[in-house]
Design a protein around this nucleic acid. Sequence first.
DNA 1: CGATAAACGAGACGGTACGTCGCGTCTTCTG
DNA 2: CAGAAGACGCGACGTACCGTCTCGTTTATCG
Lengths: 199, 199, 199, 199
Amino acid sequence: MRPGPKPDHSRDAVILDAALEVLAEAGYTGMTVDMVAARAKAGKATVYRRWDSKAQLVLDAIARLDLARPPADQLPDTGSLAGDFRALTVSFGTEDEARRLRVMAGLVSMLADDEGLADRANAAVVEPWVEVNRVLLRRAIARHEISSTTDVETLAWVVPAMATYRVCVQRKPIQTGYVAGLIDTVLLPAVGLTATDPG
Amino acid sequence: MRPGPKPDHSRDAVILDAALEVLAEAGYTGMTVDMVAARAKAGKATVYRRWDSKAQLVLDAIARLDLARPPADQLPDTGSLAGDFRALTVSFGTEDEARRLRVMAGLVSMLADDEGLADRANAAVVEPWVEVNRVLLRRAIARHEISSTTDVETLAWVVPAMATYRVCVQRKPIQTGYVAGLIDTVLLPAVGLTATDPG
Amino acid sequence: MRPGPKPDHSRDAVILDAALEVLAEAGYTGMTVDMVAARAKAGKATVYRRWDSKAQLVLDAIARLDLARPPADQLPDTGSLAGDFRALTVSFGTEDEARRLRVMAGLVSMLADDEGLADRANAAVVEPWVEVNRVLLRRAIARHEISSTTDVETLAWVVPAMATYRVCVQRKPIQTGYVAGLIDTVLLPAVGLTATDPG
Amino acid sequence: MRPGPKPDHSRDAVILDAALEVLAEAGYTGMTVDMVAARAKAGKATVYRRWDSKAQLVLDAIARLDLARPPADQLPDTGSLAGDFRALTVSFGTEDEARRLRVMAGLVSMLADDEGLADRANAAVVEPWVEVNRVLLRRAIARHEISSTTDVETLAWVVPAMATYRVCVQRKPIQTGYVAGLIDTVLLPAVGLTATDPG
DNA sequence: CGATAAACGAGACGGTACGTCGCGTCTTCTG
DNA sequence: CAGAAGACGCGACGTACCGTCTCGTTTATCG
């Protein structure tokens, strides 16, 4: 094999985590590459050797946010769509999800800058949530809880899109109650179910 | 009266229009105040005499987008909620609305930079649309078409929030069909109505 | 005339003086453009608006060193070549000339970097001294003190070149005694005169 | 003895020659250690294992320039100071000496950077020449050709200092004629001799 | 003759200066 | 005296080089 050190990929993680920290604290505009490099105890050249620009760095950083997410095959299965959704909302009280959303809010600044970057941001942060909703909806169809003609694709986006709007534009935090409200008021009625008290 | 010319407020409109043009072409980040001043054949000081910052300038600029919007008291009144909403959707095929949304997409970049600017952006671009929905929903309640316990506040946000998400994050255009789909699939079912063919 | 502020040439002098200070303290390599800008309370962009590079800045800076030099038409005229030269050496004890030479020493680093820059440095710092020597030698020829076949061009360079070598390469200070020694030991014998005690 | 290969000192010469090449082509500032290592097909670590810094590397490199110089005990001995000096000047037409001076010119950049490096550069490049002159002058004193009170130390520096100035600051080549002119016009008259036609 | 340790080519790394560009302020001249 | 033109202070961006360190490979000595 060619001699010489491979790129030290353990530095990648350190730099990306530093980027996420700064991003959550200062937002995309307030974050400087020097800040990230300093926090990661890395040289600026090391950052730019791996990523072409600040924007690319941030994109890779946000991709790390999903590493801690539960995989789609370990979803709650309560037997009812309402119960499944309600079980999911619990995660919005965790510090982990709060961080994810703070980052998403800081990240909005860059969405318009580069064609395709927004796609990747969307794919990294929101799409996984949508996918979970798709699975839950399809399971409800499979057990004949809701109509087989339900527009899964549209409905799976309702809560993630509205929550993202709240975080990014209105800049309000997302708490369990807010998501639960959307589910009871919009999602369940839209699929023909009545919101019932979980007790 | 003191001598000398009054502030030439006709310049305001020229500068704001120049700002909108640049904003639609280059996005918030790509737009520079020098570009705007040059296009308006104005000095940069003239811009800063009227607006404290680039962000404030853009906020005022986007407020002009609403000038062409129908005022809330000239809303369609078809007698049914479904008809009213459907009548609204026609505006989304116009070039005017398309421009509004291109600007909104370019505008996302600035939301995270300054506390409160996002509020104003929200108020200028999305809130009027929400207000229209509130009026239509309340009229439907008044004529007992939908339940008086309907959560107007939440439901009025469903379509604007999802459309904004689509434009700003997914960067897809909003056409009449997309909005109509949201109304038929999400909004009407959520208030207990069935989407019916307009014909 | 075209409106707008002219480049504020009073800033030029401030920046150039700051450059000379830093140059004398740290040498060309140790001098940074940020240091110069900070000391001049100027922005780095202001420096680069006037000079293409650090090297060009330094070149203009050293050109200022001559502003304080006595013009060639106010040279000492003691009636003898030995007396004229001896009168000139007095200036080498002044703080002004000491600074000039500290700068020259700091400046050596850049001579090889760009074709032609060395010429300008030479012209600014050493050539004026050579010109003074030429005048003194020609006057001595005119009054038949020395031979009319004297090689003025070569001899005028002897003391400046050796002094420059001492400062730049050997990095020793130039004092009155050193220059006087060169005159008595090299220059006056070379033109056929005997060094005589000035008393 | 401990196992493992000894340092391969054949690499030293390759690296130093590469350094001289780059130095002559690009000057001290334009030369990078990576360039030298690449040209020598050596790793940068191999360079830094032997020399503490770029400056030390260059100093050792220029020391190699003297390997071809005649040792001080094989000096010309023509019986007259003028003849001895004139015999020395022939070397300045050689390609070997021309290269030495090109390197010296490129080397000036580093003189101001580190206290003591200039001394070593001076010792390596100019001092040997001065030493030759000292020997010739002392021999002339010994055979009563010139005064025993001659200031050998100062006069031995005249030609090397002026030639160095010409190469480093004025960046003109040194040819046989230039050195011969200095000898006839400055050095010989300064010691009380008349330049005589060598024929 | 196989283990070991040094030296090597390659090149990633932390650090620092360079030169560019945009923001928001301030100054000069013109109508 | 308002306004265009644009220079200014500030600070972030992305690039290049220095000197250090770390890989895998080769090579010479030792057990």
